[in-house]
């Protein structure tokens, strides 16, 4: 379970997150939508402590921290309970697909080599890239790289995987294979927080859709409600604009 209470993030005077309260159950798939620059990515980055939140408390599993008082060890522990999938894949450029996935197990979890690579091979199998085990990122397509990025997140065994616009950098031809893998994970009830502009994914896969604007949660609910019966005028306005360019 993930619980955020009054989570906020300021960059200087700019308030990017303005008191976010959010509880996500184990196995829940939450999709976050909203206009650009409204703090969606920042929210995910705060949960993984890639950004230091300004105030609030955060719970992941059995660990709760006041973000201001979190020790270095607590921040590390929080990071290890969450996994991140980056928009630009951010695979380790000096490591093969297999090594990218095994890295967490080898270095952080200190598994013996054989066991770590065994597990990494299983994951490569699941993401359909068993034949790319020894390929370096530079030699893979965007879609393949992002699937390895997801595989790397899967290997962490984290409570939640955070997806930060995972298909936004992809050429259109690779989008489906990445969304397909995410759907597969969703069907296995992997807890996920997904920031995306793929409205059809949100509608078909999400348990809950959250609309964020101006650093606040404006509206949330099941996709049927948000997409077909939005209450807030800002939600209506956003959906009208985005569905015009990305029809569901």
């Amino acid at each position: 379970m993930i619980k955020l209470e009054s989570l906020s993030k300021h960059f200087g005077k700019a308030v990017v997150l303005d008191g976010i309260d959010l509880t996500i159950e184990k196995g829940e798939i939450v999709v976050i939508i909203g206009p650009s620059g409204t703090g969606k990515s920042t929210l995910l980055r705060c949960v993984n402590f890639l950004e230091q939140p300004t105030a609030g408390t955060m719970t992941v599993g059995d660990l709760t921290v006041d973000v201001n008082r979190a020790s270095r060890a607590e921040i590390l522990s929080m990071r290890r309970r969450t996994a991140f999938v980056f928009q630009n894949y951010a695979l380790f450029a000096n490591k093969t697909a297999l090594q990218n996935i095994a890295e967490r197990l080898l270095v952080v979890d200190r598994w013996p080599k054989e066991k770590a690579y065994q597990r990494a091979r299983e994951i490569l199998e699941q993401i359909g890239l068993a034949d790319k085990a020894d390929a370096y990122p530079a030699a893979m397509s965007g879609g393949q790289q992002q699937r390895v990025g997801i595989g790397r997140a899967m290997a962490t065994g984290a409570e939640v995987i955070l997806f930060d616009e995972p298909t936004s950098s992809l050429d259109p031809e690779w989008v489906e294979e990445v969304l397909g893998l995410m759907k597969q994970l969703a069907s296995e009830r992997q807890t996920m927080m997904v920031v995306t502009h793929e409205m059809s994914f949100a509608r078909d896969v999400a348990d809950r859709v959250i609309f964020i604007d101006g650093g606040r949660i404006v509206e949330q609910g099941p996709p049927s409600e948000i997409f077909y019966n939005p209450k807030d005028p800002r939600t209506k306005d956003f959906l009208k604009k985005i569905l015009a360019t990305n029809p569901v």
Binding site: N48, F49, L50, L76, R79, R80, T82, A83, F84, F86, N88, A90, L91, F92, A93, N94, E103, R104, V107, V108, R152, A153, T156
Partner: peptide, 27 residues
């Protein structure tokens, strides 16, 4: 070395020392 390499290493829970040794310095 691209900032995203550091972020990716942090995201999987590496310490500063580990990410330097295994990701940043080799690159």
């Amino acid at each position: 070395v691209d900032r995203s390499q550091t972020e990716a290493a942090l995201s999987i829970g590496m310490t500063n020392g580990q990410l330097m040794r295994r990701i940043v310095l080799p690159q």
